[in-house]
Design a protein around this nucleic acid. Structure first.
Length: 741
DNA sequence: ACTCTCACTGTAGACGCG
DNA sequence: ACGCGTCC
DNA sequence: ACGTACAGTGAGAG
């Protein structure tokens, strides 16, 4: 039911918080839409004639598909980028409200039956609408349709409105379009009503939460209390108190607790066991899906064939109509991908900071004073001898070799889940296991001998992203990091608070990291200073040592290298907290790809791949010269300033990493949690594994919910030990032969 | 008289043709 | 501009 | 084992 009477209350008490806009003005904007309410409306109204609805051959209702299909196309054609958010589990507090609705529907069903009996058309019409219920199947149909159309779908973990609001707060969408006033209570910064009202019965209205608070002169907490008092889905208000009185009381007393204490108990009866605090919690800290802070929504081209099959063959849509509609989606996609670059322009013109420069160098150590040695390659690439086995040299005789294997296996079985049949086998029948391994070894030796010197090694190197890959997203490090970046932009770059989240994300999207984007826009801050601020006060204590992962890593025979966009200090801190310091041969980090100065001191091959970009001379130049870097051609619409920073997901960064690590991409597996990094990793020729996702994404060869599942999902990594083993055996044999010869 | 609350009821898409 | 039938 | 919401109305309380 949303918040009772909030529209009126705001119209009367905060008229300036709402402004009339137009449908067209949201062109180019990402808009979150609550899917359930839309589907509900479609089911009620699309193609309804009494109890008749639009159906497919199988007699299943298709009204929701019809409605959603045309509405979404309408949005796309207007240049908007819709994100549909589906409901998750409703909070427990909402149960009673839902039960009420359920019983109402049951009543309506009875009335409907009676109406059909008596044959009164209007009653049939009326009551059949009231029995409408959005089922799981409807939801699934719609998700499928949207995905085929290339439109992003979000599954909220609880209330869709809460999820929408969070998407908006974090800048992933520009606004939430809904009719539900709850959206404001959940704190969606920009909330649009009647956006879909093609009837023009109501104009499109935009609410801004910040303006509401300002005009009502309330804090967000107080506003939430106000909404609870007005009456929300989660608990009753106080009888006799509506919007007006609630506003007065909140202004006067500040919080529900105080109001309860002060108001007349004679006149107002406070409900017993009134769960207003729980309701407050739902609004204030709603359960939302823990999504990747850096995840970027994409509106991709529709899957034409499958979409046609779904609509035409399965649901009886008119073929020509669908074909025409798909054409519209494609055209809209094409236009908006061209338009995307425009969205950064406003910041280019207005945001190049002038004042912030003076204070710039006081926070961090100017890089010029840092010891150049610190940036030599060795620091970032702790090159160690390639460690394949314990004491490889000693493995002259098979027995020694098997002792090594035993060690590894013993290590495995101590922590790997029981599912590893090898480990069990080894534990139960150590002697037999040894014998079997011995035989396998001999077999491998002879196989190898037959094949000759052909190198069978499948993987030589494993390239790991660090944050959100080696430890889960839920630690909140990523979130804290983002907050710090926003804080930095606010404090030191003097960017307007209202622009920060959105700008942050846009730059991230366009340049790979927000920092790279800021640099490209001409902000001349110091890299180290930025990193120090952003990574300085992260809640590292939340990272706990991960011995399981450590053992997994140590048991992998391949080279293992970290590839992160973060700086060295952060990488060191994280790895040390996780207890993984010594698991990696090297770290490719921000400084590796963006040497502070003296790019010449780099190895030739590294420099070669960097030289296609302008080296970052930025730090050596004066402010005015730096500003000149941001100059772009006003007349060329497609040109944005190039980033001077090399980072994922650019293909150049991938190739640079491959060169620095000196690996063959075909024999390297790249682990990352970001879809676009995976895509560009694939483009660079790497094997790719998306971590933290249960579904495959474009460009990924494999999906891992957690890095801990690596052994189950990629047994090849360990199986390769046998390959390595063959190699060792063989090379040993060859050497022996040489010696003998 | 006037303000406010409450309970109840009604209504809700999108397109294209003429 | 509008009403009205149609979509499946 | 489930899934929506506001606007308008008029009666009645204070």
């Amino acid at each position: 039911m949303g918040i009772k009477g909030l529209t009126k209350l705001l119209a009367a008490n905060a008229p300036n918080s709402m402004k009339e806009t137009t449908f067209e003005s949201y062109s180019g904007r990402e808009i979150a839409v609550d899917a359930s309410t839309s589907i509900y409306q479609f089911l009620i109204v699309v193609g309804r004639n009494g109890t008749q609805m639009l159906t497919n051959d199988a007699g299943q209702v298709t009204s929701h598909l019809q409605g959603l299909f045309s509405r979404t196309i309408r949005l796309l054609e207007a240049g908007m980028k819709p994100v549909y958010v589906f409901d998750g589990k409703p909070p427990d507090l909402k149960k009673q409200e839902l039960a009420k609705r359920h019983s109402k529907r049951m009543d309506a069903s009875e009335y409907l039956a009676a109406a059909i009996e008596s044959g009164v058309k209007e009653d049939i019409e009326k009551y059949s609408k009231r029995t409408v219920k959005v089922t799981r199947q409807h939801n699934e149909d719609c998700k499928k349709l949207l995905r085929l159309m290339g439109v992003p779908v979000v599954e909220a973990s609880s209330e869709a409105e809460a999820e929408c609001a969070t998407l908006c707060k974090t800048g992933k969408v520009y606004a939430v379009a809904s009719e539900d006033m709850d959206t404001l209570t959940f704190g969606a910064p920009i909330f649009v009503r009647h956006l879909m009202g093609s009837s023009r019965k109501f104009p499109v209205v935009q609410y801004e939460v910040a303006k509401i608070l300002k005009e009502l002169n309330l804090t967000m907490d107080q506003f939430i209390d106000l909404c609870i008092l007005c009456g929300c889905d989660y608990c009753d208000g106080i009888r006799g108190i509506g919007g007006q009185t609630a506003l007065k009381l909140v202004r006067q007393h500040g919080s529900i607790e105080n109001i309860v204490e002060k108001i007349s108990k004679v006149r107002y009866r406070i409900p017993e066991n009134w769960p207003f605090q729980e309701a407050r919690c739902i609004f204030k800290d709603p359960v939302v899906s823990v999504s990747d802070q850096n995840h970027v929504f994409e509106w991709i081209t529709p899957d034409e064939e499958v979409l046609k099959n779904f609509l035409v063959n399965e649901n009886g849509f008119n073929h020509d109509r669908v074909t025409k509609a798909i054409g519209k989606i494609k055209a809209a996609n094409y236009r908006s991908s061209n338009r995307r670059l425009h969205s950064l322009k406003p910041w280019l013109r207005t945001s190049v900071p002038l004042k912030s420069k003076e204070t710039k160098c006081q926070l961090g150590v100017p890089s010029a004073f840092l010891n150049p040695k610190m940036f030599s390659l060795q620091v970032y690439m702790h090159l160690r001898p390639k460690l394949l086995w314990p004491s490889v040299d000693e493995l002259v005789r098979p027995v020694n070799l098997f002792l090594g294997v035993c060690k590894e296996l013993a290590l495995f079985s101590s922590y790997i889940h029981v599912s590893s049949s090898w480990s069990i086998f080894f534990l139960l029948f150590p002697f037999q296991a040894l014998l079997l391994l011995y035989l396998m070894g001999l077999q491998a030796f002879f196989d190898m001998d037959a094949i000759g010197r052909l190198n069978k090694t499948k993987y030589e190197c494993l390239l790991f992203d660090m944050d959100d890959t080696l430890y889960p997203m839920s630690t909140g490090i990523n979130y804290a990091c983002r907050k710090n970046i926003e804080e930095y932009m606010l404090q030191f770059l003097e960017i307007d608070a209202s622009e920060v989240p959105r700008m942050c994300l846009e730059l991230y999207k366009e340049y790979g990291t927000t920092m790279a984007g800021l640099k490209a826009l001409g902000y001349g801050f110091d890299n180290d200073e930025f990193h120090a601020f952003v990574h300085g006060r992260l809640p590292y204590e939340r990272l706990k040592p991960d011995p399981v992962l450590r053992n997994l890593l140590l048991s992998m025979p391949q080279r293992k290298i970290i590839f992160t966009n973060a700086d060295k200090a952060h990488a060191d801190q994280v790895l040390s907290r996780l207890g993984l310091d010594d698991c990696f041969e090297g770290i490719i980090c921000f400084e590796t790809l963006n040497p502070p100065f003296e790019p010449n001191s780099y190895e030739d091959e590294v420099y070669k791949c960097l030289s296609s970009e302008e080296p970052d001379y930025n730090l050596l130049f004066s402010d005015s010269e730096r500003k000149a870097d941001a100059i772009y051609d006003e007349n060329d619409d497609s040109l944005l300033p190039k980033s001077q920073i090399l980072c994922k997901p650019s293909l150049e960064s991938m190739e640079a990493a491959i060169q620095i690590a000196n690996v063959d991409p075909k024999k390297t597996i790249f682990f990352d949690d970001s879809v676009r990094n995976i895509a560009s990793g694939k483009a660079a020729g790497l094997h790719t594994v998306i971590v933290g996702s249960s579904e495959l994404v474009p460009g990924a060869d494999l999906a891992l919910t957690s890095i801990h599942n690596i052994k189950e999902a990629l047994p090849e990594i360990w199986e390769e030990e046998e390959d390595q083993f063959e190699q060792v055996v063989q090379s040993t044999a060859v050497e022996t032969v040489d010696v003998l010869a």
